[in-house]
Simulated scan of single mutants.
Amino acid sequence: MLESPLEARLSRHLTLTFSERDALRWLERRERSFRAGDVVVHEGEESDSLYIVASGWLHGSVKLKDGGRQILRFYFVGDITATFSIAWGYSAATLRAVSDTTLYEMPKAAFGRLFRDHPRLGALLFAVAASEQVAMADRLTSVGRTDGFTRIATLLLDIRSRLRVVDGLAGSTFELPLTQQDLGDAVGLTKTHVSRSLKALEETGLVERNARVIRINDVDRLAELVDFHDRHGEVATDWLPPVGARGDMDHSETRVREHM
């Protein structure tokens, strides 16, 4: 059986049991496809589902008072999206496809059962989410405290780091299906300032652009220059509950019980 996107993502941090792998695949039963630009869920819309990204890119954004938007984060293969609605019955942000995208839709209740029946998986998901929150805090600090050059460089380094984790990207060349408006909305710059910042990056020789393809020629040097910290590598797993902890039952048994 082929690895599921979420299974592949989590397997980079922990060797999963058969039962845990089966539980993750069980979440990926309802497939939905979206074209680039499609909205999956609108800000303020009632929502009781989460989504696992099977292919493509998405972003979550909020509308600003002046009619603009702030892109909060990007989502890639293996990510769980729309978690910004998990605490409420409505979505706190708009989820939009950046490229043609395939998602697995799962009800919040099914996600909750994963935590109940497989606490080790739940703890690992919490650890991964915590690392992503720190990465978001780094980017927000960059937006609030640095110039356009540093903001764009930090975003490119962060995307490159995320792709290495979720797609197994080797090297420092990747396709960037984002417009200058997208980049500006993610780092708080106008399109003009984004263009100038990208040009300044290219002039250093540290970054090259060829249409939608980005190449970072010296990741370490660029990271040092803009004080970038890679938060998307390994996460600590020594504190996770052991397999067989209370509630960690065989997933097939769980399904049988749910249908009794």
Rank of each mutant, 00 (worst) to 15 (best):
D38K: 05
G68T: 00
L64M: 13
L58M: 14
E31T: 11
I71C: 05
R35F: 00
D22A: 05
Q70G: 04
G60I: 06
I52N: 08
H42C: 07
G56L: 03
W57D: 13
E43L: 13
V53H: 03
A54M: 06
D22F: 05
D22L: 10
V62E: 13
R29A: 11
S33Y: 02
R32L: 11
R29H: 09
R73L: 05
S61A: 07
K63G: 10
R32K: 15
E31R: 14
G56N: 12
W26E: 13
V39M: 03
G56H: 04
A23R: 10
R73S: 01
Y51K: 11
R29M: 07
V62P: 06
Q70A: 08
R73I: 03
F34E: 06
I52H: 09
D48G: 14
W57Q: 06
R29P: 04
W26L: 07
R30K: 13
A36M: 01
I52W: 07
L64H: 03
F34L: 11
G56Q: 10
H42W: 10
K65S: 11
K63T: 12
Q70R: 04
R32I: 05
F34P: 06
V41T: 09
R32M: 05
R30L: 02
G60L: 11
G44C: 12
R35M: 08
A54S: 14
E45G: 04
R35V: 01
I71K: 01
L64S: 07
L50Q: 15
R29K: 06
S33H: 02
D38L: 01
V41P: 11
G60Q: 10
A23M: 15
R69K: 07
R73F: 06
S55D: 12
S61G: 13
E46A: 14
H59Q: 02
R69Q: 00
V53A: 08
D66A: 07
L50G: 10
W57T: 09
E46W: 12
R25H: 12
R73A: 03
A36F: 02
K63M: 01
G44E: 08
A36K: 00
E28R: 14
L72D: 01
V41W: 06
L64K: 15
R29W: 12
S61W: 05
V41Y: 01
H59Y: 13
S61M: 12
G67D: 14
Q70M: 10
S55L: 10
S33E: 13
S47W: 09
R32A: 02
E45S: 10
L24A: 08
Q70P: 04
E43G: 14
G37T: 04
S33K: 05
R69F: 00
D38E: 08
H59A: 00
L58P: 04
H42V: 09
E45H: 13
G56F: 03
A36D: 00
R30V: 08
W26N: 13
S47T: 07
V40Q: 04
H59E: 07
R25S: 01
D48R: 15
